[in-house]
Write a protein that binds this DNA or RNA. Sequence first.
DNA 1: GTCCATGTTCTTTA
DNA 2: CTAAAGAACATGGA
Length: 290
Amino acid sequence: MPELPEVQTVVNTLRPAVVGQLIRAVTLHRQDILTPADIDFPAAITGRSIANLTRRAKRIVFDLDDGNRFYIHLGMSGRLTIDPPNAELPKHTHLILHLQSQDIRFRDPRRFGGIWWLGNNPADDPALGPEPLTLRPAQLARQLSRTRRPIKSALLDQSVVAGLGNIYVDESLFAAGIHPLRIAGELSEEEISRLCKSIKQVLRRALHHRGSTLRDYFDADGNPGGFKKLHSVYDRASEPCRRCKTSIVRIVLSGRSTCFCPTCQPPPRRRQKNRRSKRSVSSVHPGKSP
DNA sequence: GTCCATGTTCTTTA
DNA sequence: CTAAAGAACATGGA
């Protein structure tokens, strides 16, 4: 459920309830949501207080007062909520942090999310690309320059840009007028700077509306996001484009639902999948080389 | 019963 | 060998 705007909204709503608070006790209902698997997580955090709460990519990072850190990833169905201490416990609640007067709960039915212990290593994860809200066009150009994947697939890759997901990639490509099947490494400098600008505009707008609630997403106070009704393409297949009235098209790309306007986002020039040029066909030897 | 889902990672293929 | 495509993970709702 959570991409950058949703994760940031969870952080924003959670932060005032947790920063400076003592973790008095911890209830862990399943050990298998933890990485590394053998960490004694309750022992490591009980009695500590939370010094800071931040977001990196789609991760919610807890800084403890002893310099240790861990992060929670919400996966597809994860939620972090603020609850009164004795409120009824919904299914799939895996972790409860008992603070001074409130509980923080992590609930995740599909369990694609989890908790990662970082210890006191301050290094950023080298597998994560730059943050999209501070992305510069030259950075984006460098990240895209050496891949021949479709731009949609490249933007979903967290090592290219960290924090976008299926909704905001589609929305950003629409805003930039770029077809999802365009080859990432073939975008012009002008298209890349337009894309860079569009990504930031879309994310800022989504943040202003506290993210998109399709079904599962709610912030730490239990409120849904309001951005879904402002989507241009995502989850709008066969509805009219808000800009030109053309029917929005849905295809599957990288195994993910992909929505776009075939008029506002012109298709790539020629080049279909599974085509080989005459030269590359004739250069392939039919038998084994000596 | 079927298909689909806001994500990531491992495996297979080209 | 590397890059990219595909499968797998687990649960619930339409």
